[in-house]
Simulated assay, not measured.
Amino acid sequence: MRNTLRLAALSTLVTSMVLPAALPANAESCSWQLKELASPAFKYVTDAAEGGWIVGSTDPSQSVVRQIRWRPDGTFEALGKGRLYRVNSSGVAISSEGTIVYADRSVKKPALPDWLGDMQLTAINNNGDVVGFGHTKNGQTDAARWSAADPGTAQRIPMPAGYSYLVPLDIDDQGNILFQAQAAGGAGFVSLVRQANGQVRQVVDPNGGGTINPHRIGGGKIVGTSSADGNVTWRTTQWNLDGAFLFAVDNSTEAGNVYINSSRQMTNRVKLNGKYQIGVYGDFTQTILGGEFDGAVPTAITDDGVITAQIYSGGGMRAATYKWTCK
């Protein structure tokens, strides 16, 4: 089910609103087309990139969890143990096992730097640069970066003064990195953005004393959720690369799973009529997808107009895509 609402009727839903760029072509001749992914009986889809690359895993509740990658021709391949949870436009993915899995199925484990006792990879960009974190001998949580040109060498990401915990959440193609951070001494968590020029900015809490949960960066923007009432109500929220608040969407009290592409098109999870559905945002419109199912949750939006989703129906779950298709 697709429900498109004009912003004229949504004036009460959006605060300080400047919506992302429009999807291509006239909305009257285009629509989001649902397609189920070929896959094993139990599957999770976790990320996607332009060109048709999609990654995920078999059901984590099973005794053996396998990495799954869908290729541009629609076929899938079961790879090593664990999960693939991020992928780029060249089909290069990172796994829960701390490995980089290339399009030709070769696997490389980035070098563990001597200042870390362990490491976990968290994000990869379309250039192939990878970020992650680990723990030092003195208990500090440090961030590292591995360049596509030299994954055998870890580059330490400088810890901002006054902090002892730095976990990268995402890296864009320009090298801007989004972090979760904690001040030394165990104070509360904050979100930081390290710009490509090395400048570090704190992501602003638009509610002043509330909670924010930024988790993706793209198209020169940061997206996530924010709460002003003790984590009871969550709104989809967007910031710029300086960490300044841009707008929040008030169409759901349980917003989450917010993603953005390089054209600043957004998707998120909303709760409407008692069930989770998928929101998509472009110029002058908001579209709701998945209303015909028991539930639907997005996991990515790509630069070429594909949303990956978990669909819940009839007590089962399946991996699917919505593709922006024009006649």
Rank of each mutant, 00 (worst) to 15 (best):
L5E: 11
R6L: 13
A9Y: 14
L10E: 10
L10P: 00
V14I: 11
V14R: 07
T15S: 12
T15R: 05
M17S: 13
A21K: 14
L23E: 12
A25P: 00
A27C: 01
C30Q: 03
S31V: 06
Q33G: 01
L34W: 01
L34I: 07
L37H: 06
S39G: 15
F42M: 04
F42H: 14
K43H: 12
A49C: 02
E50N: 09
G51F: 04
I54K: 09
V55E: 02
S57A: 12
D59P: 03
P60M: 09
S61M: 10
V64L: 08
V65M: 01
R66C: 00
R69T: 05
R69C: 02
R71W: 06
R71V: 11
R71L: 13
R71Y: 13
P72G: 07
F76V: 03
L79W: 05
G80E: 10
K81L: 15
G82F: 06
G82V: 09
R83T: 14
N88D: 12
S95R: 06
V101K: 02
S106V: 08
P110E: 02
D118Q: 10
T122R: 14
T122P: 05
I124L: 13
I124M: 09
V130P: 01
V131E: 11
G134R: 02
N138K: 14
A143D: 02
R145K: 15
P151D: 07
G152K: 04
R156K: 15
I157G: 08
I157C: 02
I157M: 13
I157F: 04
I157H: 10
M159S: 10
M159H: 06
A161V: 13
G162I: 04
Y165G: 05
L166I: 03
L166S: 06
D170M: 03
I171Y: 06
D172F: 04
N176E: 02
N176C: 04
I177Y: 02
Q182H: 03
F189N: 10
S191M: 01
L192T: 04
V193H: 11
R194S: 08
N197V: 05
Q202V: 14
V203M: 07
V204C: 05
P214E: 09
R216P: 00
K221T: 13
T225Q: 06
N231K: 15
V232L: 12
T233D: 12
R235G: 00
R235Q: 13
T236P: 02
T237C: 12
Q238F: 09
W239C: 06
W239H: 10
N240Q: 12
L241W: 08
A244T: 13
L246K: 12
F247I: 00
A255L: 01
V258H: 02
Y259K: 05
N261K: 07
R264K: 15
R269E: 15
N273A: 13
K275A: 00
V280C: 00
T285G: 06
T287F: 04
E292C: 03
A296S: 15
D304T: 07
I307H: 04
T308Y: 07
A309K: 05
A309I: 08
Q310K: 13
S313W: 09
S313V: 11
M317V: 12
A319C: 12
A319W: 00
K327W: 01
